[in-house]
Write a protein that binds this DNA or RNA. Structure first.
Length: 160
DNA sequence: ATACCGGCTAGCC
DNA sequence: GGGCTAGCCGGTA
């Protein structure tokens, strides 16, 4: 799959690894990943033809090629519409995505989000306000990211 | 089919 | 508030 570029690019949460095609951003990985790890991860999913690009060339659009249509795409697309500085519970996101009652499965979909932090799965928290888990760096990073965009986080929970 | 498993939840102490 | 539980849904082996 030629035409895939990647770079360590600035985000509101620091420099993250991002990958893109002419169609849009298709993958992301947290700052803790080494370049080798991200590259290997990209090649396994997109094939060869992945090359380093310029951080300034990252498109704004999202390229959903790594998210198969269906439940996961529905949920991640709905997640992408959560405004910065706000949060939604797993149950609310399930309903917003057209799958009421699937809160538990939404957690699993977030856990396999291939494009953090572009698809802001860090804005999805538990119904009781507790921060919940975060695959791309753990709950502490999730809390820091929320704080960075103005969400009040106290004792591992957000205001509800 | 069938049996787990996991970024959850509501209900009940 | 805390802790525990059965129930929940979609993914994967």
């Amino acid at each position: 799959m030629p035409g895939v570029r990647y770079a360590r690019a600035p985000t509101p949460y620091g420099d993250w690894w991002l990958a893109w095609t002419p169609a849009g951003v298709c993958a992301g990985a947290d700052p803790g990943w080494t370049e080798e790890r991200f590259l290997a991860w990209l090649r396994r999913r997109l094939g060869g033809g992945v090359e380093r690009g310029a951080a300034g060339d990252v498109p704004r659009q999202i390229d959903w090629r790594l998210v198969p249509p269906g439940f996961r795409r529905d949920v991640l697309a709905a997640c992408a519409r959560i405004p910065a500085g706000t949060t939604m519970s797993y149950a609310e996101l399930a309903a917003a995505a057209g799958h009421p009652g699937a809160a538990r499965a939404v957690g699993s979909a977030m856990a396999t989000n291939p494009l953090p932090p572009v698809v802001p799965c860090h804005r999805v928290v538990r119904s009781d306000g507790r921060i919940g888990e975060y695959s791309a760096g753990g709950p502490a990073r999730k809390a820091a990211m929320l704080l960075a965009e103005g969400v009040e986080v106290r004792d591992g929970a957000v205001r509800r």
